[in-house]
Simulated scan of single mutants.
Amino acid sequence: MTQQASCTVTDPATARTLRQHHAFLGLFVQPQSPSELAPRLGMAANLVHHHARRLADCGLLFQQRRGGGRVYFQLTAREFRVPSWLLPPEDPQGNGTADLRELSEGFLGAYSRSWATLHAGEEDVYGFGDATHPAPRMTPPDAPSPEGHPAHLDRLTVHLTPERYRRLARALSALLEEAQAEGHSEGGAPCTLAVLTFHAGDKPGRSLSRSTNSFLGADQ
């Protein structure tokens, strides 16, 4: 068997597996041995082999060859095409819902780690004082989180024409295209950068608003 240029997925279970394991599958564009990938992934070789075998069983990978006591797997195709009707957005394991849940869970986990790192050893103090000795104000720390990859969220709601909306959304996505073209940083860690833009509704009087939940710090 040889790798195909393109393949159409017609089974919902396979389409879900493709979406859920997209990053792992991307490691097998060229023939790869699970035992060689295991150190990079920080996983046991038998566990990586188990995942690769499962993906081969559903047709997304194939056993390309054996050699030197190792099994090499490769992507069945360089491109997988999934009809839009196969996984509608409301499918909890499908497209939009699953993507947003994955992003939400990932960000909340990163936010918790950044919060814990920044506030380690601190405590909240609720003082009430009196007219003579007023309670001190509680102010957030100015120092950035010492975490290497702190969580960062920046949100803006503003009235836009359709033309300006599309221009700004494309400009944001262009930053991701630039990062993709630059590729991995040597010795870097996996990070998710996401762009989310949407129509906020037609409620009258919606004001321009900006909010951030970031641990980057002003100097980062």
Score class of each variant (00 low, 15 high):
residue 1 M to W: 08
residue 1 M to T: 14
residue 2 T to V: 11
residue 2 T to H: 03
residue 5 A to P: 04
residue 7 C to L: 13
residue 8 T to N: 02
residue 9 V to Y: 15
residue 11 D to C: 12
residue 11 D to S: 14
residue 13 A to C: 10
residue 15 A to W: 10
residue 15 A to I: 11
residue 15 A to Y: 12
residue 17 T to S: 13
residue 18 L to I: 15
residue 19 R to H: 10
residue 21 H to V: 08
residue 22 H to D: 11
residue 22 H to M: 03
residue 26 G to F: 03
residue 37 L to P: 00
residue 40 R to E: 09
residue 41 L to D: 03
residue 43 M to S: 06
residue 43 M to N: 03
residue 44 A to R: 13
residue 45 A to F: 15
residue 46 N to Q: 08
residue 48 V to A: 06
residue 50 H to K: 15
residue 50 H to N: 10
residue 56 A to Y: 00
residue 57 D to H: 10
residue 58 C to M: 05
residue 58 C to S: 09
residue 59 G to I: 12
residue 61 L to P: 02
residue 62 F to Q: 13
residue 63 Q to K: 01
residue 63 Q to A: 02
residue 63 Q to W: 00
residue 64 Q to Y: 09
residue 66 R to A: 01
residue 67 G to F: 01
residue 77 A to R: 15
residue 79 E to P: 00
residue 82 V to H: 09
residue 85 W to L: 03
residue 86 L to T: 09
residue 88 P to A: 06
residue 88 P to N: 10
residue 88 P to V: 06
residue 90 E to Y: 05
residue 92 P to Y: 12
residue 96 G to Q: 14
residue 97 T to L: 15
residue 99 D to H: 06
residue 99 D to S: 09
residue 101 R to P: 02
residue 101 R to H: 03
residue 103 L to W: 08
residue 106 G to Y: 03
residue 106 G to W: 00
residue 107 F to A: 04
residue 108 L to D: 04
residue 116 A to M: 13
residue 125 V to S: 04
residue 125 V to L: 15
residue 126 Y to A: 10
residue 129 G to S: 06
residue 130 D to K: 05
residue 130 D to A: 02
residue 131 A to Y: 08
residue 134 P to I: 03
residue 134 P to T: 01
residue 147 E to A: 09
residue 148 G to M: 08
residue 150 P to K: 09
residue 151 A to C: 08
residue 152 H to V: 12
residue 154 D to Q: 05
residue 157 T to I: 12
residue 160 L to C: 03
residue 162 P to V: 08
residue 164 R to Y: 00
residue 165 Y to K: 03
residue 165 Y to R: 05
residue 166 R to F: 05
residue 170 R to T: 06
residue 171 A to V: 01
residue 171 A to M: 05
residue 173 S to E: 10
residue 176 L to Y: 14
residue 179 A to G: 11
residue 181 A to S: 13
residue 185 S to K: 07
residue 185 S to M: 08
residue 187 G to L: 13
residue 187 G to I: 15
residue 188 G to I: 07
residue 188 G to R: 00
residue 189 A to M: 02
residue 189 A to V: 14
residue 191 C to P: 12
residue 198 F to C: 14
residue 202 D to P: 04
residue 203 K to Q: 07
residue 203 K to C: 05
residue 203 K to P: 00
residue 205 G to C: 09
residue 209 S to F: 04
residue 210 R to T: 03
residue 210 R to Q: 07
residue 210 R to W: 08
residue 215 F to Q: 06
residue 215 F to A: 08
residue 218 A to W: 03
residue 219 D to T: 11
residue 219 D to N: 09
residue 220 Q to H: 04
residue 220 Q to M: 05
